[in-house]
């Protein structure tokens, strides 16, 4: 494997966003790119990352390899990179280590690190293609704000999408709270757009602790996409450049 990333910051942000949810995971490398799929310890949430080969330049992976990496170790090394550094990941065919090289584009500084790999027996889950009842895209910062505001009142949030809009509501010991967003197009600031595509109304309840955790990815993309259907996990997607993505799935709360 040899994969060169124009900005080390991208990988740094991705790992930073998921490291509190999953600890040890396999980075599955093949000629289409680098993928990661991992559940949190309690099997409530699933992280799915895809960094497509096109996100790297160049990208070369001659043989499929799984790099088992402890994310807190990876984060320690990624913190040694300057945000603007060029990052090259390298690994052999049957690797014991993954090699990370940081190059400054402005100076002649070159730093090199090896991280010891681990054997991780990780099961891959099959994520079915789903036609979601509601797909909401909104500013990532707005979603983060709503989750952070509501967690002050309650541990869970009901997300209800109707043709009127999308309502995030919660109730807790001190009282209730709700934030409603309607579809909104801002021609001058399209990054503030809220788009709600609805085939049928849907209402589901989720743990806010996990949503707040997902929102650590807000720095990766201006927009977040929420996809909901009755009785299936919520998809929270941050789209990255070159069709790469960071997706989180969250199992709904069940029964009453």
């Amino acid at each position: 494997l040899e994969a060169r990333l124009e900005q080390a910051n991208l990988l740094k942000k991705v790992v930073d966003a998921i490291k509190d949810l999953v600890q040890d995971c396999n980075f599955d490398c093949n000629d289409s790119g680098i993928a990661l799929q991992a559940m949190d310890n309690s099997h409530v949430a699933l992280v799915s990352m895809m960094l497509k080969a096109e996100s790297f330049s160049p990208f070369r992976c001659d043989r499929n390899i799984a790099l088992g990496i402890n994310l807190s170790s990876l984060m320690k090394v990624l913190r040694c990179a300057q945000n603007e550094d060029i990052l090259t990941l390298k690994a052999d065919d049957a690797p014991d280590v993954v090699n990370l090289v940081f190059e400054s584009s402005e100076s002649d500084r070159l730093s090199e690190y090896d991280i010891k790999l681990m054997d991780i027996d990780q099961e891959h889950l099959g994520i079915p293609e789903t036609e979601y009842s509601a797909t909401i895209s909104m500013p990532a910062a707005e979603f983060q704000r709503i989750c952070r505001d509501l967690i002050a009142l309650s541990e869970s949030v009901a997300i209800e999408a109707t043709k009127e809009g999308v309502k995030f509501s919660c109730s807790g010991d001190i009282g209730n709270g709700a934030v409603t967003l309607r579809s909104h197009t801002n021609v001058e600031k399209p990054e503030l757009n809220v788009d709600i595509a609805l085939s049928e109304p849907v209402a589901l309840t989720f743990s806010l602790k996990y949503l707040v955790n997902f929102c650590k990815a807000s720095g990766l993309s201006g927009t977040v996409k929420l996809c909901l259907s009755s009785e299936v996990p919520l998809l929270v997607e941050y789209t990255l450049a070159s069709n790469s993505y960071l997706r989180f799935y969250l199992a709904p709360k069940i029964g009453d």
Binding site: L125, P128, G255
Partner: peptide, 14 residues
């Protein structure tokens, strides 16, 4: 009281 769903009940093992 609502319980928490398990992601493995929705996405089967590959």
């Amino acid at each position: 009281k609502a319980g928490q769903g398990n992601i493995m009940n929705f996405f089967g093992k590959k």
